[in-house]
């Protein structure tokens, strides 16, 4: 009986360490330079489509996070009176500085992800990989893996690597699975560069 108790205690301690403490240590907790509501911009208030800011250029390059000039189109002067709004206008728009966003979905540098092939070629929706990011009210903290330096979005939120949702985790295996399911070539240099 005693040994079982020891086993259970050890099990609990190790599970706690592995599932709670280790991830907490493994990932940093970095706030975005300022808050931004995707919900306001893409929802009923403004009603912009994703592609309005996150443009895909004609040569197939994805422009990703828009430059400050795009923000300035509407935010030349402060709209509303929140602290973040003031920060945006005073610190970035008026000074012409780019906002140092921490990009959740940025992948490792040894692989390329052509948005054109996936959006137009495969007809995937943004949500397939980015989840509800486009309708989120606020920007969560950016969490960087201290060992690899990559965003937590790459590995996913489950430390065991089990996906909680389709877009949770964008590891190589996740890319490969989808390629396999859709009968797309899975060769290394299809993505690695």
């Amino acid at each position: 009986m005693k040994s079982i108790r020891w086993f259970v205690a050890g099990f609990v301690v190790m599970m706690l360490f592995g599932w709670v403490i280790f991830p907490a240590i493994l990932y940093t907790h970095e706030e975005q330079p300022l808050q931004f509501s995707h919900k306001v911009h893409s929802g009923e208030t403004v009603g912009l489509p994703c592609q309005d800011c996150h443009r895909l250029s004609a040569d197939g390059r994805f422009e990703g996070v828009p430059a400050i000039a795009k923000c300035a189109e509407c935010h030349a002067e402060a709209i509303g009176s929140t602290a973040d709004e003031r920060l945006l206008v005073e610190e970035y728009v008026k000074k012409g500085r780019e906002i140092p966003w921490l990009v959740y979905a940025r992948g490792p540098q040894n692989a390329s992800f052509p948005h054109a092939s996936h959006l137009i070629g495969a007809g995937l929706a943004c949500e397939r990989c980015h989840g509800s990011q486009g309708t989120a009210e606020s920007l969560p903290a950016f969490r960087r893996n201290r060992i690899s330096g990559e965003s937590q979005a790459i590995w996913g939120t489950s430390i065991a690597g089990f996906k909680m949702a389709e877009w949770d985790g964008m590891k190589m295996d996740d890319c490969a699975r989808c390629h396999r399911e859709r009968g797309v070539a899975n060769t290394c240099l299809k993505c690695h560069k």
């Binding site: 040569d59 197939g60 390059r61 390329s112 052509p114 137009i120 240099l189 299809k190 560069k193």
Partner: peptide
């Protein structure tokens, strides 16, 4: 030499953008 795989990838993306 991979026959310039970077160029191949870029060409593929460009073709995809043009459907």
């Amino acid at each position: 030499c991979n026959f310039c795989h970077g160029r191949l990838q870029a060409a593929r993306a460009k073709a995809a953008a043009g459907s």
